[in-house]
Amino acid sequence: MKFRNYQRTEATGFGKLLENKWYVDELYDKIIVNPLHQFGGFLKSVIEKSVIDGLVNGVGKAVTYGSRQLRLLQSGQAGSYVLLMVLGMLLVFVVQFFLRK
């Protein structure tokens, strides 16, 4: 028995392929695990947080913003109220005109 038999040497060629189990694990990692992980991360941080949740929160924000703007209509000036009233009446007439069957 020679000492060399017990020495750990790096296999080469086909031996290396076998030693690494045909690289099946690495292949799985490359083509399935990592892409799925990345895709999951993308869904979590972009789609979920910005798109879907952003849409939901956006509805809330739009309502708050809209009500803040509408509040300005309550100016206390009778003139502007009369103007709005006339405009509203006109709108009703227009709508009625077009909706008549």
Partner: peptide, 10 residues
């Protein structure tokens, strides 16, 4: 699929 993928990353 969507929720499962996010669960993996949670």
């Amino acid at each position: 699929v969507y929720a499962s993928l996010i669960a993996i990353r949670s």
